[in-house]
Nucleic acid binder design. Structure first.
Lengths: 224, 224
DNA sequence: GTTGTAATTATACAAAATTATAATTTATTC
DNA sequence: GAATAAATTATAATTTTGTATAATTACAAC
């Protein structure tokens, strides 16, 4: 019931028809599956079935389940990281120094856009939240590899915008921020259940604004 | 290397020696294992081995892996929920109406205490973070079952303390709050890596204060 | 057109893991 | 002290699952 069989008629072996990129079909389906069931909870078999592809093809392209997972993460992770840098560059190019809200929004916008971009983008966001809950060494390495650089740059810029707040405090609050938005992006659809349907009518776009306001206030809060 | 064999000499069958509560030993080890590897990533075998117990005994006590998992969650979940109610009652019994910071602290304190209480408490906190990242229907139900009631009560009290902020906004911000603290409690140990070791010297206790300040500012932020 | 190579499937293997059953020991009760 | 029931182990059966190999097809190049 859960797994939709996307392709019933089997493909014939041989050279692929121009444009049919099975490698990407696999990555897309893996993204959806990993987001829903996690790494250990996802079966390579299922990904293959969803992609309408033989199991062995996954091995052919990616080597192992773990490598497939890593590839799923890297593919979009580097996009996000890049977009964050671009957003920050754009902000710093303006004549006035950026406000805290602007910096935060610059950081969140890429994730937000990805989430809005369709089912796969949304799945990837959920996958990140999962990854952040995994204490395994491998997950940690992967997270660092993909995200650390941009976080550090944002901490620097925030420090400049909030000179009265010690840098360690900013670092910590930045960590809080990451937790908040990841959770929020992940849980947004289910937020209604948690709160008795009280926020069902708030538009998606307004929600980002609300989040930014919340985080900006927290980040700029006076120290003791 | 990862799995420590807690008991090498096998137990003999029969009635247990007074005081040796294998049921709890199993729950404790399951808690640690699930927190580290997640539900799907944990093998019943390993739990049995860590608890120094035969696999079949787990089945005997809990029926299935899933039921064991649920039991691990319920055991402490109800403690947390209860403690939150107690904290709130205590606060409301004071002559003055509670401040936002006080309310937040009341909400966080039980989790914080649990985390400090030892390896198993800390593991449980991590486990909750994991659960919040799982979109599966079963995980959702479990979360609702264990936590929803207390959250709703806190939303009410916060609404009273912040009459100028609409209730839907409070609800949403409460959801942000949950995300922030879960992530923080989960990631605290690794926070240093993320921020280049800049917050290594902050005492654990001070960290809770910092978190409360951050969240209180966010919750009380003026609306648009 | 034959040959070679890349992409894909069909099928098989082997390890791992959950579930199941039967046997064994100990305490308790009458 | 015999009987009964509970707790525990040993062992087995079955299902799942990741991995591996061999066979097949199609395209391209010479």
């Amino acid at each position: 019931m859960s797994q939709t069989n996307h392709r019933t008629v089997p493909r014939k072996p041989g050279r692929p028809k121009e444009g049919e990129d099975l490698r990407y079909v696999i990555l897309d389906e893996a993204e959806l599956a990993f987001a829903e069931h996690g790494f250990a909870g996802t079966r390579v078999r299922d990904i293959a079935m969803l992609a309408g592809v033989n199991q062995a093809l996954i091995r052919y392209y990616f080597g192992s389940k773990q490598e497939l997972f890593d590839e799923v993460l890297r593919r979009r992770g580097s996009d996000i990281s890049g977009a964050r840098h671009v957003q920050l560059d754009r902000l710093l190019a303006l004549p006035d120094p950026p406000s805290v809200s602007q910096i935060i929004r610059a950081y969140l916008q890429p994730q937000w856009d990805m989430k809005q971009s369709g089912p796969n983008g949304a799945a990837f966001v959920r996958l990140q939240a999962r990854l952040h809950a995994e204490p395994e060494a491998h997950a940690l390495r992967l997270r660092s590899e993909v995200y650390d650089a941009s976080v550090k740059r944002y901490i620097q810029v925030l420090s400049d915008a909030l000179p009265e707040i010690p840098r360690e405090t900013i670092s910590m609050r930045m960590a809080f921020l990451v937790g908040t938005y990841l959770f929020m992006l992940n849980d947004l659809g289910r937020l209604n259940d948690l709160t008795d349907g009280q926020i069902g009518d708030i538009a998606q776009d307004e929600m980002l604004g609300q989040l930014v306001r919340f985080l900006a206030a927290g980040l700029a809060a006076p120290v003791s």
